[in-house]
Design a binder for these strands. Structure first.
Length: 165
DNA sequence: CCACGGTGGTAGA
DNA sequence: TCTACCACCGTGG
């Protein structure tokens, strides 16, 4: 399935993200890498539904990067995650902009109160950062915790949403 | 099996 | 507060 993914870039205020789509929806969204991201990853042969999804992705992404609600989402294809991971990612999507939860709260929310560290692992494995707001999960004492995309990015995203630590 | 985390709680300085 | 230590649990090797 991995081979059939269609890859499209999104230019944002924070650089060029890369989105990958399956026939089911958005599979992953990657942070801009290094410098030379001006390289076009567009394909000429993109099916109409995916073009539509990608427009939604672009708008939603720009909104969240600006600290606002994403609005309309493209369909998400999270089928490559484990059951546990999907539960966590689902829980993350319920955290509105400007609000935060602790890893422990997420663990309780999915009915596995002791799986606290595992929740951290699932957050780190989140294939669609920003849109699936793993940056809104903090350590218990309102401490920043970790972030795969870099702590600076996490701080910045939260700051734009008006969250103070 | 085993080792490793984006944790959390406790104890002590 | 900060450090040290340990119980916990899903993942990947």
């Amino acid at each position: 399935m991995k081979n059939r993914l269609i890859q499209l870039s999104v230019s944002t205020r924070d650089g060029q993200f890369v989105a990958r789509y399956s026939e089911e929806g958005l599979v992953e969204l990657n942070f801009p890498v290094g410098r030379a991201s001006s390289r076009a990853v567009k394909q000429n042969d993109v099916p109409a539904p995916i073009r539509r999804w990608h427009r939604a992705t672009a708008v939603a992404l720009e909104s969240v990067l600006a600290g606002r609600s994403p609005g309309k989402f493209p369909p998400l294809d999270l089928s490559n995650g484990t059951t546990f991971q999907r539960k966590v990612w689902n829980a993350l999507r319920k955290i509105p902009p400007g609000k935060t939860k602790s890893y422990g709260e997420i663990a309780r929310a999915i009915g596995k109160p002791k799986a606290v560290r595992a929740v951290g692992g699932a957050c780190g494995a989140n294939p669609i950062p920003v849109l699936v707001p793993c940056h809104r999960v903090l350590a218990v004492n309102k401490k920043l915790g970790g972030f795969s995309g870099g702590l600076n990015r996490k701080r910045e995203l939260l700051a734009r949403e008006g969250v103070s630590l």
